[in-house]
Amino acid sequence: MPALTLSSSERTVLRSQVHALKPTVLIGSSGLTDAVINEINIQLKAQELIIIRVLSGNPLAFCNKICDRLSAASIQHIGKLLAIWKPQCADNTLSTTSRNTTRIYAAPRVVKIVKLSSATRRPKPYWIKVLSNERLTSDGNVKKAKRRQISLKRQYQFKK
């Protein structure tokens, strides 16, 4: 499977999202094994955009092999860190919003929650549908995301 190609504007948007991420996969001294490729594929399915840390070997060669085998796109390569993106949607594009910024939206997901009912009863599992604009708290409640605050200076610009 060939690697994906991205335009420079798409790559720039994804690079800005990479800054907040931490490495999720480490490639050690044994190199790029099938188990490592499988773990990278699992992480890409879960997150779309991941960072990989290479401890030994040639990071650029590993990046090319990963992108070819998983049909993913290389976003950034700095030293021993690789940023790789693989879209979950079928059309391999980023979705755009009305303000000319590009964002990736997560689909609704079903989450299993186990709550303790009392000390003598068994915990009762149940499933909840969590939308992309919602988050799950540690006690099992669903909260909607708050609107992002805009500075007074920007509010004044948008009113004109």
Rank of each mutant, 00 (worst) to 15 (best):
Q17P: 05
H19C: 14
V130H: 00
V130F: 00
A73D: 04
D68G: 07
R135P: 05
S29A: 08
C67P: 02
L4E: 00
A107D: 07
L136E: 10
Q17T: 14
S95K: 09
R11P: 06
C63H: 10
S117K: 03
L60D: 03
K80W: 06
G31H: 10
Q149G: 07
I78R: 05
R15D: 14
L70F: 11
I104R: 15
K112T: 15
M1R: 15
L32I: 09
A106W: 11
A61D: 14
I50E: 11
A72D: 08
K146Y: 03
N58H: 05
R103P: 01
A90Q: 15
K146T: 07
L49Q: 10
A90E: 15
L14S: 00
A35F: 11
V111P: 04
I84Q: 01
A61R: 14
R109K: 13
G57Y: 13
N58S: 09
S74M: 12
T24I: 11
P87H: 04
R147P: 04
N92A: 06
V13Q: 07
T102S: 12
N64S: 09
K144R: 14
R99E: 14
L70T: 07
S71H: 05
T97R: 05
S138T: 07
R121L: 10
V142F: 00
S74C: 13
V25P: 01
T24E: 13
K115L: 10
P2C: 01
N100W: 09
